[in-house]
Amino acid sequence: MQPTPQDVILETRDLNMRFGGLLAVSDFSAVFPRGSITGLIGPNGAGKTTCFNMITGFYKPTSGQVVFHGEEVQGRPPHALCRAGIARTFQNIRLFNNETVLENVMIGRHLRQKTNWLQTLVFTPASRREEKEIRARCMELLDVVGLADLAGEKAASLPYGAQRRLEIARALATEPSFLLLDEPAAGMNPQESEDLMGFVRTIREAFGLTILLIEHDMKVVMGVCEHLWVLDYGQTIASGPPEAIRSDPKVITAYLGEEQPHA
């Protein structure tokens, strides 16, 4: 069943990214239906993170388009795309280490804040009310990811799995409609990745999200994704539902010598 244009929240058209002589991503064309959970997989260095960086504005594509809510957005700066509703996490965790867990999430709210700091100088009622609201809303988000008890801790002091969840909470605070997760299960133990799958589905429902995730853990990929795109050396070598991908000979070859997809 082909999705109708209204159902597509984000679409990439022939995205290319060249670094000097290396074509890191070539002609990446993908559609992401509203409310779907899609996986982007492939061996190391396949160009997955590079795709994320193009969609979120960190890299300006060498050519091609990113169409978000029917509008071409490629080449816009990351903060503008975040404002438009695209949020992400990072493969190598990037928290604000000297800030508390709560402050990390509050920074994500800043974008939707109406009062500014000059108003806090004179304690205007509006700014006090909004600051209270932000705190309350961020505590709720921490509750969703199970970090409410650690709200006052420095972000750097959290264990690894908790840091990953904090990154997600922080991304949710920006009120995205499209969320990109770069290897959310990396470094998690089997129990944690099991929980992560449920968690990804939960936030999709609760926040009305469309999710794109990169993941090496095939159990997570097969368990949670409804559709997969497979990259190898920057080329899209396959796309389809997980069951079809699992038995696709091209995908199996790509992974041979790398790691066998163990499902």
Partner: peptide, 10 residues
């Protein structure tokens, strides 16, 4: 603390 993450936070 982390300029890249700040950009990603809008």
């Amino acid at each position: 603390d982390n300029e890249i993450a700040a950009k990603a936070m809008g």
